[in-house]
Amino acid sequence: MKRTVPMMIAMIGGIIMMIQYFIPHQVSQDVFNYYTEWAPLVGSFALVLGVGSLTRVHIHKIRAKAPNWPYSYAVLIPLYLIPVFAFFLPASIGGGTGKPSVFDFMYSRVQIPIQATMFSMLAFYIASAAFRAFRAKSALATILLVTAIIVMLAQVPIGDLFGRWLPDTGLWILRFPNLAAKRAIELGVGFGMLATCLKIIFGVERGWLGGAGE
């Protein structure tokens, strides 16, 4: 039962959604709308489980005094305190989501800079990866390397100093060879998706069922 019901839901739902695509009639539209209304609801419930998981993991770390356990407080305190400030406390003591507020401060002065920093680390990592891993080991690797250098130069104004041919070649590479390779991979991916979806709908693939699958 635990296994059959979800599989039947997936099968019936999958077939209905597949057929629905070809039917413009109102009945079909209603089915689609009904489905799209359900999706956010399920997501909201799952978020509660997610927050529960996060809390459980960190409480466990604190109780067990696991390595670096004080950091768990840095997760749990803002996780519960910021919503309290944002939704329950009056603006006079820094509540609410307007400016100035604790929520706004945490957002604009903590979250944005931290996220921007994380992303900017890419520049350092790309440099390191380029030095260590980008080798002209074979003829194909050499072509790839030369192409990469042309495209990199074409993407910045300094490339224009070598003459218009460089940015034009860079753009040509992006517009044609890049496109050809991308389409080839995407075709394979598309058929892979099609096969995976069919496997799910017809019960061949059950990994997505979690514990009920096998």
């Binding site: 440099a127 030095f131 250098i149 990199m152 130069l153 993407q155 300094i158």
Partner: peptide, 11 residues
């Protein structure tokens, strides 16, 4: 521009 040049140099 300079960052790209440096990465190319690294390569």
């Amino acid at each position: 521009s300079l960052a790209h040049i440096l990465i190319i140099l690294f390569v």
